[in-house]
Amino acid sequence: MSRHEIFTNLVSSEEELREMLGSPGKLAAHKTIRFLDEHCRNFIAKSPFLVIATADAGGSCDASPRGDAPGFVHVVDEKHLVIPERQGNRKFDSLLNILANPNVGLFFMIPGLGETLRINGRGYVIKDNGMLEGMTVQGKTPLVGIGIEVEECYIHCAKAIKRSELWQPSTWLTQMQLPSIPHMLAAHIQIPDEVITPEDVEKSLEESYTKRLY
């Protein structure tokens, strides 16, 4: 079944979209800069979390989180920054995409702040020891990092954060209300001739979080 059998009333051009929703205001249309100024550097230095968006050679997209202590992203100069590649699941979705298609988008967040920082540019998988040694944590130096050549920087307004009440603890679910990740993963993992239980997943996650965080 193709998507057009489900989504039958589509917007098909920018002209149609603009006619329905309008054009950006003066401030929004002129807020993009092409380099990391002191304000962007300060934002990055205080951010413990980002999402990196990548796509492979065919255009299939991926968005992946990166997080660590505030300042974990190293600003090299006004046009370049480096994200350390910590231990993960070894699928390397972002890295493999960058090797095939260097176009990337970054989305930096600071807890408690509604506005976010967006950066677009070109990504590189780097193994520069001089840069990566400065990102050592708990005695572990990342073997590779993601180098970003900055092309666009701009602040994204807080409307989405305000509408979602993301930073309002009073809106957060209780522990009992949260989705059970072990049950979700056990249902998703398909290994021939092997049954994976929620208990198996919970044990694996706990070991990963306690022994392989860096």
Rank of each mutant, 00 (worst) to 15 (best):
R3S: 12
R3D: 13
H4Y: 15
F7E: 05
T8L: 02
T8K: 12
V11C: 05
S12R: 15
E19H: 10
M20S: 02
P24N: 15
A28H: 05
A29F: 08
H30T: 15
K31H: 14
K31N: 13
T32I: 09
R34I: 14
F35P: 10
D37E: 00
R41E: 14
S47A: 10
P48E: 10
F49I: 11
I52S: 04
A63K: 02
P65M: 13
D68K: 10
A69T: 03
P70K: 04
V73R: 05
H74V: 11
V75L: 09
V75H: 08
K79S: 14
K79M: 15
K79V: 08
I83A: 11
P84N: 02
E85N: 15
E85L: 07
Q87D: 11
Q87N: 15
L96E: 10
L96V: 05
N97G: 08
I98C: 01
L99D: 11
A100W: 09
N101W: 03
P102S: 11
N103C: 11
V104Q: 08
F107A: 00
M109W: 00
M109I: 05
G112H: 09
L113R: 00
G114D: 06
L117C: 05
R118H: 07
G121P: 01
Y124Q: 13
D128H: 04
N129C: 04
L132H: 15
E133D: 10
M135P: 02
M135C: 03
V137D: 02
G139D: 01
P142A: 05
P142H: 09
L143Y: 05
V144F: 10
E149L: 05
E151G: 14
C153R: 00
Y154R: 08
Y154E: 12
H156L: 03
A158E: 15
A158T: 01
K159T: 01
A160Y: 12
I161M: 13
I161V: 09
I161E: 07
K162Q: 03
R163K: 07
S164E: 07
E165I: 10
E165K: 09
Q168V: 04
W172C: 04
L173Y: 00
L173Q: 11
L178M: 04
L178Q: 06
P179S: 14
S180I: 15
P182I: 14
P182S: 13
P182Q: 15
M184P: 00
L185S: 12
A186E: 06
A187K: 13
I189W: 04
P192I: 09
D193Q: 09
K203H: 10
E207G: 09
S208H: 02
S208I: 00
Y209D: 00
Y214V: 07
Y214M: 01
